[in-house]
Design a protein around this nucleic acid. Structure first.
Length: 284
DNA sequence: AAGCTAGACAACCGCACACGG
DNA sequence: ACCGTGTGCGGTTGTCTAGCT
């Protein structure tokens, strides 16, 4: 006997959201907050399942979303984090306020993967692709190293300590990924390829030299400003909080911004308009 | 102009986890 | 401890669009 479906899918709409549906969902959430996603579509008058509403809100309608393409710095940070914690997109996204896990995942799959492959780096292991072949020859090495790059749920703590280990200084006092450093110097075809070499060095700098602790510390300001958990679920934007009379910080600004945002709802289909709003919105 | 293709991104699906009863 | 429910997450699929032929 399988698990009950999250909703009765009969009669429910699927596929792309219409403007009208977006309006309904936004209006409902802004007026009522989020208590139970399953009830949201019913109460908001939407023929969608709760899950779909949640996803739409999180990935598209949230007012604190940062739209637009990723900067090179962001890309590098994603690469760095991915090399440390793998495909845990929500964790990675938590370091980028305003970005969603879906957005980062898509960007990784469509852009960054290619960029790394082009640079001769295996996006899975973050090692030079040649090294993969060496790994094939050394099964024991694989087992050890793959366990640090392929991450399953529930292994977070051990992975994080693995990350720490990776970031520990090696015997020569160099921080980072010694295997990567060695490989970088020993790839003859890269020697005469300055551009790629430079890019690889930049990558190595990120993967090898960056102190993640410092990095995270630098991110701390943003992290602390968004929410304690830095989760985007309902904490990074809580209507309940914004409606709470006890909250005074920036309240009028929030009110003003909310109204402004609602007024601009039509222009939101063009997300450029939304980007302009982000300057004014929700510095929780 | 029409058809095709690849890339980008939105949305869905199923599983796992958290939590309350 | 067990069960049911709600939610979060990651992988996958679907859809749209720009560029090319």
């Amino acid at each position: 006997m399988g698990r009950q479906p999250c909703c009765d899918k009969v009669g429910l709409k699927r596929g792309p959201w219409t403007i009208e549906e977006d309006h309904k969902l936004m209006n409902f959430i802004l007026n009522n907050g989020i208590h139970c996603w399953r009830m949201v579509p019913k109460l908001a008058g939407l023929l969608r399942c709760g899950k779909s509403c949640r996803l739409r809100w999180i990935n598209y309608l949230r007012p604190d979303l940062k739209r637009g393409s990723f900067t090179e710095t962001e890309e590098n940070q994603i690469i760095q984090l991915h090399s440390c914690i793998g495909n845990r997109w929500s964790k990675i996204a938590s370091h980028f306020p305003g970005r969603t896990d879906n957005e980062i995942k898509n960007h990784w799959n469509t852009r960054i993967k290619k960029r790394l492959k082009h640079l001769g780096v295996d996006p899975l292991t973050h090692k030079p692709i040649e090294q993969k072949e060496n790994i094939e020859e050394n099964k024991q090495t694989i087992t050890r190293e793959d366990s640090s790059s392929s991450i399953s749920q529930g292994q977070e703590e051990s992975q994080d300590s693995g990350l720490e280990a990776k970031l520990q200084q090696d015997g020569n006092g160099n921080r980072g990924f010694p295997e990567f450093n060695d490989k970088l110097q020993n790839v003859p075809e890269l020697a005469g390829f300055d551009e790629t070499n430079d890019l690889l060095k930049n990558y190595e700098m990120f993967c090898g030299s960056l102190d993640l602790g410092t990095f995270l510390l630098n991110q701390g300001t943003n992290i602390n400003n968004t929410s304690t958990s830095n989760s985007y679920s309902t904490s990074s934007f809580s209507v309940e909080e914004s409606n709470n009379p006890s909250i005074s910080i920036g309240e009028s600004i929030q009110e003003h911004s909310l109204q402004k945002w609602m007024d601009s709802v039509d222009s939101m289909l063009s997300w450029d308009g939304f980007n302009n709003l982000e300057q004014d919105l929700f510095f929780f």
